[in-house]
Amino acid sequence: MGFKLLSKLLVYLTASIMAIASPLAFSVDSSGEYPTVSEIPVGEVRLYQIADGVWSHIATQSFDGAVYPSNGLIVRDGDELLLIDTAWGAKNTAALLAEIEKQIGLPVTRAVSTHFHDDRVGGVDVLRAAGVATYASPSTRRLAEVEGNEIPTHSLEGLSSSGDAVRFGPVELFYPGAAHSTDNLIVYVPSASVLYGGCAIYELSRTSAGNVADADLAEWPTSIERIQQHYPEAQFVIPGHGLPGGLDLLKHTTNVVKAHTNRSVVE
């Protein structure tokens, strides 16, 4: 069995187990497998329904001669939608809004960016022009300005110390501490036991640490421990890039980060 097929099978099995364990909360999309990078042309966006009122959005972007996937989250909030992270750029984010209108038909009224990198804030200006209120932590807003990236308009308070959590509509926002970046936030959907790890969490097929220019490698494993301790009931975990899975993604990420750190020390 090929690795790609095995990865998709694991996603399907995880979703099936969740649907059985929580039949009222989960209505997993039966329309197909989780979209992969090879299936999404740059400039297009796919939506994948995880649970009743919960979707991931998947886009792709060219970077350094390669094409990478990027995940975000959409959560229903009454007759409105909360968006977590842009679709990595203005063109993708405009396509995301169009796809949401086509498939869901509810307005996106608020959006949260989970850290300051372009795959999370690139497209904020498109959201703002569409009347979406954009939010991020003060740290993310400051770092985005320093980096020359787009800056969300509103500040999220109460997320300055490791372990801080605040309720934001249908989700809980959690600051686990520094990891992929010093400002990275985690998003949890309690009604569906869905954990969105953003770039602080890796997919299972990833074996290298990737972009760690703004990471705190020493603190990252401790931050992941905080996530595990705060959300032990999480059933569906979405990484910032690639295929979702279960809580095993947290341990896998820790292993990859520690291996990278150990290699760096040896070198």
Rank of each mutant, 00 (worst) to 15 (best):
residue 96 L to M: 14
residue 28 V to A: 10
residue 157 E to G: 15
residue 41 P to R: 09
residue 258 K to I: 09
residue 244 P to S: 06
residue 215 A to G: 12
residue 122 G to R: 12
residue 192 A to I: 08
residue 76 R to L: 11
residue 22 S to Y: 06
residue 141 R to A: 14
residue 231 Y to L: 04
residue 256 V to M: 07
residue 81 L to G: 03
residue 14 T to F: 10
residue 73 L to T: 02
residue 186 I to E: 01
residue 227 I to T: 14
residue 263 R to M: 06
residue 195 L to F: 04
residue 176 P to E: 00
residue 168 F to A: 02
residue 162 S to C: 11
residue 110 R to D: 06
residue 111 A to K: 03
residue 11 V to P: 12
residue 267 E to N: 05
residue 200 A to K: 02
residue 132 V to F: 02
residue 14 T to E: 14
residue 105 G to S: 15
residue 20 I to E: 13
residue 236 F to V: 08
residue 76 R to I: 08
residue 222 T to K: 10
residue 161 S to M: 12
residue 55 W to C: 01
residue 44 E to H: 15
residue 85 D to I: 00
residue 115 H to C: 00
residue 222 T to P: 08
residue 19 A to V: 11
residue 117 H to Y: 01
residue 132 V to L: 07
residue 266 V to P: 11
residue 78 G to Y: 10
residue 65 G to T: 06
residue 231 Y to G: 01
residue 190 P to K: 05
residue 135 Y to N: 03
residue 190 P to Y: 04
residue 198 G to E: 02
residue 196 Y to G: 02
residue 248 D to V: 08
residue 111 A to T: 12
residue 129 A to E: 08
residue 15 A to P: 07
residue 38 S to K: 14
residue 52 D to K: 08
residue 57 H to D: 04
residue 125 D to Y: 11
residue 250 L to T: 04
residue 14 T to V: 11
residue 184 N to V: 02
residue 179 A to M: 06
residue 216 D to I: 14
residue 83 L to R: 01
residue 186 I to N: 03
residue 246 G to A: 10
residue 94 A to Y: 11
residue 145 E to N: 10
residue 227 I to P: 01
residue 245 G to F: 00
residue 53 G to F: 10
residue 237 V to A: 05
residue 150 E to V: 05
residue 45 V to P: 15
residue 78 G to S: 09
residue 46 R to S: 10
residue 267 E to A: 07
residue 118 D to M: 05
residue 138 P to D: 13
residue 28 V to G: 09
residue 87 A to M: 00
residue 121 V to I: 06
residue 251 K to M: 05
residue 232 P to H: 06
residue 173 L to Y: 03
residue 38 S to H: 15
residue 168 F to N: 00
residue 194 V to Y: 01
residue 238 I to V: 06
residue 88 W to D: 00
residue 52 D to S: 09
residue 265 V to Q: 14
residue 195 L to I: 07
residue 242 G to P: 03
residue 162 S to P: 14
residue 162 S to T: 09
residue 146 V to K: 08
residue 100 I to M: 14
residue 6 L to F: 10
residue 65 G to D: 07
residue 150 E to R: 04
residue 230 H to L: 09
residue 191 S to L: 09
residue 60 T to I: 05
residue 102 K to I: 15
residue 243 L to Q: 10
residue 131 G to W: 04
residue 4 K to D: 11
residue 151 I to R: 10
residue 127 L to D: 02
residue 156 L to I: 06
residue 177 G to A: 01
residue 35 P to Q: 14
residue 117 H to N: 00
residue 234 A to S: 09
residue 167 R to V: 05
residue 154 H to Y: 05
residue 179 A to G: 10
residue 82 L to C: 14
residue 29 D to H: 06
residue 252 H to L: 03
residue 31 S to A: 13
residue 216 D to G: 10
residue 54 V to N: 01
residue 3 F to A: 06
residue 86 T to M: 02
residue 206 R to Q: 10
residue 256 V to L: 15
residue 203 E to C: 04
residue 148 G to P: 05
residue 56 S to R: 11
residue 141 R to Y: 04
residue 263 R to D: 07
residue 218 A to N: 12
residue 127 L to R: 02
residue 243 L to R: 07
residue 128 R to Y: 06
residue 156 L to G: 02
residue 219 E to Y: 15
residue 58 I to C: 09
residue 83 L to C: 03
residue 117 H to I: 00
residue 53 G to R: 11
residue 98 A to L: 09
residue 147 E to M: 07
residue 158 G to Q: 14
residue 17 I to H: 15
residue 228 Q to P: 04
residue 123 G to D: 03
residue 178 A to I: 07
residue 8 K to S: 13
residue 2 G to V: 12
residue 122 G to P: 04
residue 85 D to T: 00
residue 35 P to F: 09
residue 105 G to N: 15
residue 198 G to L: 03
residue 64 D to W: 13
residue 20 I to Q: 07
residue 93 T to A: 01
residue 137 S to Y: 04
residue 104 I to D: 00
residue 56 S to A: 10
residue 80 E to N: 15
